[in-house]
């Protein structure tokens, strides 16, 4: 499988994603600079974490107008898999490819810590290797991961099974204490209606090797491999 790792000025998780795809999963990977428009030969795109354009104005607000984003949208419309992690999630929301917005954490702090995520849907190309209700331990690292959408949008996400991950306790309970940033309904990750674009605040690429403290991130990448195979 050929993964494209999209790099904006200020992206910093690109090498981590590239490493996981190439060295841990043994797949093909190449970087895609934000000014490039050539996505040929790619099966899947990753929009990694970082602070594209310094997060000026709003997170992802400037990056979403980078030349590559038109191609990313076209790629997604054709059904290609797109995984937005952290800043990548923020960019996908700004681009209107995912509903809602990511705001400043409610406590205003930057949080870099392990969190527990409950898999709310295993019927996605990104979670097919998980069981529904399974708890994944994956780190977060962000100051603006506070998911917001209006009541109608939230109801629609729930009804259509588009909420993929929620912050939870180690036992899988959705509680305010388990919510690290104030996200509505503890939402940590959502998928588009078409079911091929996933945005999530936690960093699965940071936990694919035991030496890094956990391997639960592999569930997500391996689900994608299975779908693409």
């Amino acid at each position: 499988m050929r993964f494209g790792v999209v790099v904006f000025p200020g992206t910093w998780s690109d090498e981590d994603c590239y490493h996981v795809v190439k060295s841990v999963l043994g797949q093909e990977a190449r970087y895609v600079w934000h000014k490039d428009r050539d996505l040929s030969g790619l099966d899947c795109l990753i929009l990694p974490g970082g602070f594209s354009y310094g997060d000026y104005l709003r997170t992802g607000a400037i990056a979403r107008f980078s030349p590559v984003m038109e191609e990313v949208e076209r790629f997604a419309r054709r059904g290609g898999l797109v995984l937005g992690i952290c800043n990548g999630f923020q960019i996908l929301c700004e681009a209107g490819m995912l509903p809602g917005a990511l705001m400043r954490n409610d406590h205003l702090q930057f949080r870099c810590q392990w969190v527990n995520l409950r898999v709310e849907s295993s019927r996605t190309p990104f979670t097919s290797e998980c069981k529904e209700g399974q708890v994944l331990r994956i780190p977060i690292s962000h100051g603006e991961g506070n998911y917001y959408a209006d009541a109608d949008t939230l109801a629609s996400l729930r009804a259509k099974g588009q909420v993929v991950f929620r912050y939870c306790t180690p036992g899988g309970d959705i509680t305010p204490e388990a919510n690290p940033n104030g996200s509505l309904e503890n939402i940590a990750g959502i998928i588009n209606a078409q079911g091929n674009v996933l945005g999530m605040m936690p960093h699965p690429e940071r936990c694919c090797e035991a030496s890094l403290g956990g391997t639960d991130g592999r569930f997500i990448f391996e689900s994608m491999l299975k779908v693409l195979a």
């Binding site: 400037i62 809602g100 917001y148 209006d150």
Partner: peptide
């Protein structure tokens, strides 16, 4: 287009 995000 850019300065405000209509969602929020």
């Amino acid at each position: 287009k850019l300065l405000a995000n209509p969602v929020i």
